[in-house]
Simulated assay, not measured.
Amino acid sequence: MTGKSSLFVNQYSDLGLHFHVIGEGVVRVRTPRQERVYDKENYIDFRMRLFGEPGQGPQVLSPGIHSFPFKLGLPLGLPSTFLGKHGWVQYYCKTALREPNGLTHKNQQVFIVMNPIDLNLEPAILGKISGQETFRCEVEHKFGVSCVGSGSVVCKVTLDRGGYVPGESIGVSASVSNRSRLTIKSTKAALTETIAYLSRGKVVQMEKRELAVLTRGKIRPGEKDEWDNEQLYIMPLPPTNLRGCHLIRINYDVFFIIEPSGLQKEVKLQLPIVMATYPLRNSDDENGNKAGTHYPSTLPIFRPWLEDKSQD
């Protein structure tokens, strides 16, 4: 990280300028019993003096704007910046301008850290490997109780691969065969984000949210429905799992949900995916970016629903 700290002096001043870089992860939760849970871990804690030498007495600056360049090498493996409802990962610089008369002027500036996840370096999540579909889920579910069976539904779901970046779409293919005597009211594919907040190694709060949904209609007894590479669009999102952070876990899944009529419970298939920051390179694009993908220049951390008081 490089930059400069600037200050405006409107008169001659005796001062020292101190610089502090902080990176931290914080979890702050209020339990149903109104107990407060707080945990914190530090990633950076670096201090330096940009102006003034200790023990040499006050120094004089002329009126005007003064800049003090600095350079700091960030440690490898820092977790990405993240803002959540019950916790965050933040990085910021603090400066303190101290005068001999005891007056202190303070300022603070946030900066963003992005720990990249490159799909090209994670071959196990790319999808079809050696001709095998690695992101496929299949289930045969029987309705009714053992003595009064209502038949079964057979469902097969496949994703085009297991890792994506914001701006891409997830290709969902499915085959739903209704071999029961019940009507299936609907089928749904949903991209879901799950955030777990931890304190002392235990999960103290969870957030779960549907980010994108595709829905199809009825499947009558004896009928079959086919999904052919239906597209779930991915909005700007933080990457999977905040690597390097032990207080916050972020996971993404595609759920395929079958809702039967009557009092039968829904059938749910779960396919975990990885949300990365650098897209998969392919022969269709010389630069390695699929059309429409968001190559990261900054990390999307704004999450509009944080201000929605109607949500839990």
Results as ranks from 00 to 15, higher is better:
55 G>T: 12
68 F>G: 04
175 S>R: 14
203 V>L: 01
262 G>I: 02
114 M>E: 09
299 L>S: 08
219 I>C: 15
191 L>D: 03
2 T>H: 11
53 E>G: 15
159 L>S: 02
282 N>K: 08
229 N>Q: 13
190 A>I: 05
311 Q>T: 08
307 E>I: 03
229 N>V: 06
208 K>M: 01
180 S>R: 00
148 V>W: 07
104 T>Q: 06
281 R>I: 10
227 W>P: 01
118 D>I: 03
101 N>F: 13
83 L>Q: 13
217 G>R: 14
271 L>S: 15
89 V>L: 10
259 E>T: 11
174 A>C: 11
85 K>L: 07
175 S>I: 10
29 V>L: 08
166 P>F: 10
184 I>K: 01
36 R>P: 02
47 R>L: 04
220 R>N: 10
20 H>T: 06
72 L>D: 07
44 I>P: 00
292 G>Y: 10
148 V>E: 14
15 L>R: 11
124 A>M: 03
123 P>E: 15
272 P>R: 05
113 V>D: 01
38 Y>T: 14
181 R>S: 05
277 T>S: 15
106 K>A: 13
247 L>H: 02
308 D>K: 11
311 Q>I: 09
306 L>P: 05
192 T>E: 11
142 K>V: 14
237 L>C: 05
15 L>K: 09
278 Y>F: 11
87 G>M: 00
304 P>W: 15
237 L>T: 04
